[in-house]
Design a binder for these strands. Sequence first.
DNA 1: CATATGACGATAT
DNA 2: AATATCGCCATAT
Length: 105
Amino acid sequence: MDFSRRVIDLVKSVPRGKVATYGQIARWAGHNRGARLVSYILHSISEKYDLPWHRIVNRRGEISLKPGYGYELQRQLLESEGITFDSGNAIDLTTYGWNIRDQFT
DNA sequence: CATATGACGATAT
DNA sequence: AATATCGCCATAT
């Protein structure tokens, strides 16, 4: 569907060293509350489309995956891009959060 | 076709 | 503030 394609497109457009949230992606893709769809799409197709799925975190800037089920991998990938985690294992979205407008400015 | 599910998020309690 | 519940809607079964 279009939504899926848009999500894929948006995820691919997240610049290295930045992160986006499920909710943001969903909104940008046309669904105000389709965050769950984004998550579903990512875990189901990220491998096929070679998406930078690790740049997608929840609204607090935390990794939603459970330790042992991808958490460590995602964290490692993010850190390898220069993203740092605070004491609460969260990313400072004020610093690393990606604004869609960045692609227009 | 009906029901379940989900890397979430916003509201209600 | 912390927890529980509902909404959202494309896929899976």
